[in-house]
Nucleic acid binder design. Structure first.
Lengths: 237, 237
DNA sequence: CACGATTGTGACCGACCGGTCACTTTTTGG
DNA sequence: CCAAAAAGTGACCGGTCGGTCACAATCGTG
């Protein structure tokens, strides 16, 4: 089995404003070293769950002393939280630009969100895989309280839109808003899994070799997306 | 975050015939001790991923020596594989009885499968949660090659049915069989997540306290199921 | 009962973990 | 140039892990 995908986070919006900061020591690091640290740490946490990820391996890969990590961060959890917020920020920068106002139908808007999500995956594979793991694979007790919020948020973010689309007649008003929200969020996630199984992508291998997550070209991906959106449209009309 | 659900395995059919057996030592154990061992081991592996689950904790809970485990099983992986096959067998005994021939429409058949799946969850919570973990949360390199097969199998198992329903006019023939299979399998899984978030079930807690996974009564669950099935029907018609 | 075979035991092994801290090295700025 | 402050270091700590093995207890059978 290869790790499965991502995309689930495309629709997260709420994102906390309180940025959890590492110690100033990390902040003061030259940009070059900082991004090298983030990259290496992200590689470890994208390929392992919280409990299995190893600080020892990270410092070995970086060629620095273990003590340095603890001058930058309080502990393993602090580092993990920083990486999480960092990646959420990166993701946001991809999705923020898509606004409902710029599209006349809900489904063209939905489709545009998806294309931006794919770009995020292509250009930020480590971020994307890490967030995927946080959202779907993680089950460590140490981070439990910090998980899962995004799925609820995604559901809630959809609800006002759904109510609106019901009024314009785009959505079937006899189905409860919650069920529709669940349906949309779930399918957004599942599209990525469909793409993965159809194109037989091995995310782990791509991560290890620094390649983008998807080898197939973007148009082929969007075609698969369109086929599924066709199903959604029919079911929610 | 609580662990999420299950049900995904409802539609698995293919199941290997080669039963991976523990050493005879385990086989010769009195039934009482055997089931106590399985129960305790299952509790550990239902609550932890492969890497995090601890043989040391299992023997502590059982009050036996660690060496005994290695007289019953080759190693941790052997034990895990045995538990996996054991649980798949238990699950099969719930689902095997449902046959397409006994239902005139695909959707009444689908619905019946679901009810049996819910019974499996209610009566075999540890099995169900363990299989859920194997199918959705596990990412240890040590078991990677043994994961995931069921999702492909579930997809493939659906395909002949879908082809058939296309001919009878129940399914839209313009959508590819693979996409429909993916859609059905994904939604089967997601229904459980919907139920969980709607009824705010904490699987982990229920497991620890030996309760069934769902507190809500079966009819309420089936009502939520029906609402989603209504969406599927519309989209695939 | 006796004695070989089977089963049960837990101290022990090497490996790895997150985290610490006395110490060295580098940077800063008067 | 030098001293004080900041950053970097890696041996070391206590702990947990999966797995082993010499030995003890128990069982089956003549």
């Amino acid at each position: 089995m290869t790790d499965r995908s991502l995309f689930g986070h495309i629709f997260v919006t709420g994102q906390s404003l309180l940025i959890i900061m590492p110690k100033e020591t990390f902040h003061n690091l030259p940009e070059e070293k900082k991004s090298q640290f983030i990259n290496t740490a992200l590689e470890e946490f994208a390929g392992n769950n919280f409990d299995t990820a190893s600080i020892t391996r990270i410092v070995k890969n970086l060629g620095i002393a273990k003590g340095s990590v603890y001058q930058y961060f309080e502990d393993k959890l602090d580092l993990w939280l920083y990486l999480k917020e960092y990646c959420e920020g990166v993701k946001m920068s991809y999705v923020r630009s898509v606004s409902r106002r710029d599209y006349d139908s809900f489904w063209s808007y939905y489709r545009a969100m998806f294309r931006h999500g794919i770009n995020f995956d292509l250009e930020q594979p480590r971020c994307s895989l890490f967030l995927y793991r946080v959202g779907f694979k993680e089950s460590s007790r140490q981070v439990r309280e910090y998980l899962d919020s995004w799925k609820k948020k995604a559901n809630e973010a959809f609800m006002p839109w759904i109510e609106h689309e019901k009024k314009t007649g785009a959505f079937d008003p006899s189905v409860s808003t919650e069920t529709i929200a669940h349906f949309l969020v779930t399918m957004s996630i599942s599209i990525a899994e469909l793409l993965q199984s159809r194109y037989k992508v091995d995310f782990d291998e791509n991560i290890r070799e620094g390649k983008p997550l998807f080898a197939a070209d973007e148009e082929a991906l969007m075609q698969a997306v369109d086929e599924l959106i066709y199903l959604f449209e029919k079911s929610l009309k």
